[in-house]
Amino acid sequence: MEKEPAAAPKGFVQWAITPPQSYAVYLVCLFLVAGLSFYVGTLKPKKAINIGPPPMSAPRN
């Protein structure tokens, strides 16, 4: 008898929430979030082209 396609994610979740594996899953997710946030932080925004100086009526701080 074949397994249903929806059984695979459910089986992975059951495996991932057991104590030894849950620590590893937590660390992997932590490193992924830290790595992605570092990568996004290193991206440089594109500079706008053909923008002149601000108008004289613009407030100064």
Rank of each mutant, 00 (worst) to 15 (best):
M1D: 15
M1N: 12
M1P: 14
E2D: 14
K3Q: 12
E4M: 13
P5C: 12
P5G: 11
P5F: 14
A6E: 10
A6F: 07
A6K: 04
A6Y: 09
A6T: 00
A7V: 00
A8L: 15
A8K: 14
A8D: 15
P9E: 11
P9A: 13
K10R: 15
K10M: 15
K10D: 15
K10N: 14
G11Y: 00
F12S: 05
F12K: 09
F12V: 03
V13T: 10
V13L: 14
V13Y: 13
Q14T: 09
W15A: 09
A16V: 04
I17S: 07
I17G: 03
P19N: 10
Q21C: 12
Q21M: 15
S22W: 00
S22D: 08
S22Q: 05
Y23W: 04
A24L: 07
A24W: 01
A24R: 05
Y26E: 03
L27I: 04
L27V: 06
L27S: 01
L27M: 08
L30K: 07
F31T: 03
F31R: 02
L32K: 02
L32T: 01
L32I: 06
A34P: 02
L36V: 01
L36P: 06
Y39M: 08
Y39C: 01
Y39I: 06
Y39T: 02
Y39N: 08
Y39H: 07
Y39E: 06
V40L: 14
V40R: 12
G41P: 00
G41I: 02
G41K: 06
L43A: 13
L43V: 13
L43W: 15
K44P: 05
K44D: 11
K44E: 13
K44Y: 06
K44T: 15
P45L: 02
K46D: 09
K47M: 06
A48Q: 15
N50V: 00
N50C: 09
I51T: 07
I51M: 08
I51C: 07
I51D: 01
P53F: 03
P53E: 03
P53M: 00
P54S: 08
P54M: 03
P54W: 03
M56V: 07
S57F: 11
P59T: 04
P59D: 07
R60T: 14
N61I: 07
